Amino acid sequence: MSLITNVMDHSLDDGYAEAARKKTQGEGGMPKTLRAKLGLASGLVLAGLVVTVGAAQARVAAPGVAKERQELIDRIDRETASADRLEGSVDKLRNDVGARQRAALKKSGGSERAADLVGVLSGATAVHGPGVKLVVNDAKEATTGGDGTNPRETADFSDNGRVRDRDMQRVVNGLWASGAEAVSINGQRLTALSAIRAAGDAILVDNKPLVPPYTVLAVGDGGRLSTRFQNSADGLYLHALEDNYGIRTAISTESDLRLPAAPSVIVRTAQPSTEKGTS
């Protein structure tokens, strides 16, 4: 009973009661004394001064920042133009090398047609003609899990919806085996010296990273190439990836595909060093 009586007598907390008393008596709120008012005014002036100085400094620094940004843009433009000029020079030199190769082959007894064929097969010259366009892309929603019996469900394939380097290797090899005369991936021409590897989740073609979707162009007899590839083991493998893991694919025959020349078809071999090692 004493607890109930105490609650009834003190229904309002003491802190709330004290605050209500001060409010009714005019205490609290704005400072009453001159010293307190001066302190508040000084604080407001100081805050305003800080904001004003900050704004002034930002305005003074703005032209310098804009100048640095413009200088960076100009530098990027200059470097881009320089890269474009170098790329054009590379194209001219590549054409010159191709012409000299054809002339040398013809002089040695071969025909110009044979020289052109060698250039196409080696990837040294750009080509165009009918063929197949195959687009391979990651699944919209990748899945994980599995008991490890499937190679795509091991630790190396934790994300089953992603296209892997070995997938693209099988695609390219399947197209070659189906009769492709020239192949490229995302504009990268493939040759007998090309390598398709992985660096983390990225797929590299000749050490250049590619970004999905992966567009594979293969020059050849379009209808026959498409049918043979889709009926091959590699085509069925790609179809299984689509059914089981949601990897998206689209294949079509094209009347005119254009593939660039390979950046380099120079065969480099290691040579033993003639210098004696020091212990």
Rank of each mutant, 00 (worst) to 15 (best):
E68L: 09
A56I: 13
R228Y: 09
D13G: 08
I4G: 06
Q271S: 12
A61D: 13
A261M: 03
E87H: 10
M1N: 06
S111R: 02
S184C: 06
G64D: 13
G161Y: 01
D91Y: 09
P31V: 15
T278Q: 05
T52Y: 14
E27T: 05
I73F: 07
T269P: 00
A114L: 05
G26H: 09
D234L: 04
T215P: 02
D165R: 09
G98F: 15
T227G: 09
G109F: 09
A56P: 01
L40M: 08
L241I: 00
R69T: 09
G131C: 00
G246S: 10
A126E: 13
G88I: 00
S89N: 07
G54C: 05
M8I: 12
L93P: 06
A142D: 09
V267W: 01
A195S: 12
T249M: 15
A104T: 07
L259T: 02
G109E: 06
K32F: 01
Q188A: 10
A99R: 12
T125R: 12
R268L: 05
L134M: 12
L241R: 15
A199P: 06
S194A: 11
V183K: 03
T149L: 10
R21C: 02
P31F: 12
N6Y: 08
L225W: 14
G110H: 00
N231K: 12
A198H: 07
M1C: 05
G161F: 01
S264I: 01
D13E: 10
Q57Y: 12
P209S: 06
Q169C: 03
L3K: 10
G43Q: 15
T24Y: 07
D167Q: 03
V216W: 14
R35N: 13
Y237N: 04
G48H: 12
R189Y: 06
T269R: 13
D156M: 04
A192M: 04
V267E: 08
G123V: 02
L86C: 02
E153C: 02
A270M: 07
E87P: 01
N95G: 09
A198G: 11
R166P: 04
V60G: 03
M168A: 00
R162H: 01
R35A: 13
G235A: 04
D116L: 12
D221M: 02
M168I: 12
L121R: 13
V183E: 02
R248I: 08
Y16C: 03
E141Q: 14
Q188R: 08
G220L: 08
A233M: 06
Y214A: 03
E79S: 07
I185H: 09
G123F: 09
S184W: 05
R152E: 08
M8D: 11
S122K: 11
Q25M: 15
M8Y: 15
P151W: 11
D206H: 03
L241W: 03
L236H: 07
V135T: 08
P151E: 10
L44D: 14
A36Q: 15
